[in-house]
Amino acid sequence: MKYTDLTYTITENMPVYPGTEKPVLEKLEIDGYRETLFHMFSHTGTHMDAPYHVFKDGRKLEDYSIEEFTGRAAVIDIPQGTKTIEPEMLKSAEGFEFVLLRTGWGSKWGRDEYFDGFPVLSLKAAEYLTGLRLKGIGLDCISVDEVGMNELPVHRVILGSGMLIIENLACLEMLPAEVTFTALPLKYADSDGCSVRAFASY
């Protein structure tokens, strides 16, 4: 069995969603032992969105069973230059529990262009995925919606179905077409989202 870590390391100078404060990792040493005090938003780095992120009565991450954070995943290549991901690009997702969209955009991680022009799902594509009864969708981009689109229409379609969204995945280029995908968030109260440790095995 091979394992690939799909998670970006959290650092104080890491890329964050425009307008969001960067994390602060306060290093403490008290009586000979060390701890770190974290100051960061719940959607920092490689992270998971829960329905509660956009719906006041939506399901929260702590409401999900551990089994819902793992499952068989189809890794789908999105052609370079794609601006809008349409349903016909996603047919190989049928029969899986997760779909991972490999757009190649992760190669821009750490640069300003990471936040602009990345492929996004059309509403029809989002609706198509919800019809497959997936556990979730992951991708190597900052968001399933364009940056600055405050209405978050694609988020609302996907999260409204109860599916999870995992954004800012790393190293998708290393994966075969089918993997077992796992993304584990912290279990905290009223969780709208959380940074995760995501990995694939195959």
Rank of each mutant, 00 (worst) to 15 (best):
L169N: 07
F41Y: 09
T9N: 07
P185C: 05
T46N: 03
F55P: 02
L129G: 09
K108V: 02
A125D: 02
D77F: 02
Y128S: 05
S65D: 15
A74L: 03
S122C: 11
I166P: 04
S201E: 14
L152C: 09
E86I: 01
Y17E: 13
F98L: 05
L90G: 10
F96R: 07
G106I: 01
K22Q: 14
D77N: 12
V54M: 04
F118M: 13
Y8Q: 10
I78T: 03
T44V: 11
A50I: 06
G138T: 05
E86W: 00
D63P: 06
A170L: 07
A50M: 06
F98W: 15
E94I: 14
R72I: 02
P119V: 05
P153I: 00
Y17C: 10
G110C: 08
L61W: 07
L134P: 06
G104Q: 09
K60G: 01
D63T: 03
W109F: 15
S65R: 14
P15I: 12
L6I: 11
I66M: 12
G131T: 02
T36G: 02
G81Q: 03
G45Q: 06
T84H: 00
G19N: 09
Y114V: 10
I137V: 15
Y202P: 02
D112F: 06
V179I: 15
N13E: 15
A198K: 11
G32Y: 06
I66V: 13
E67M: 03
P119I: 07
Y188A: 13
G117C: 08
R197A: 14
M163I: 05
F69G: 07
M149R: 13
Y188K: 13
P185F: 02
T36I: 15
D63L: 03
P18V: 06
V120S: 12
V157W: 05
F41R: 13
D190Q: 14
L159E: 00
I85E: 08
Y202S: 14
L134W: 04
L159G: 04
T44S: 09
F55S: 03
P15K: 12
G71I: 02
D77L: 05
S92N: 10
I78Q: 08
K22T: 14
P119R: 06
G32A: 05
G19K: 09
E167W: 00
L123P: 08
D77G: 00
F181W: 02
A183R: 09
L132W: 10
I30L: 11
D49K: 02
K60A: 14
L132G: 12
T82H: 11
G160V: 11
A50Q: 06
T103A: 09
F55M: 11
D31Q: 10
S92K: 14
V75Q: 03
E113Y: 04
Y114M: 12
E67Y: 08
L159W: 04
D5F: 02
F69D: 04
G193N: 10
L129M: 11
D49T: 00
E151M: 01
K83W: 02
P176E: 13
L61N: 01
V179N: 10
F118D: 12
D190S: 13
T182G: 04
L175W: 10
I166G: 11
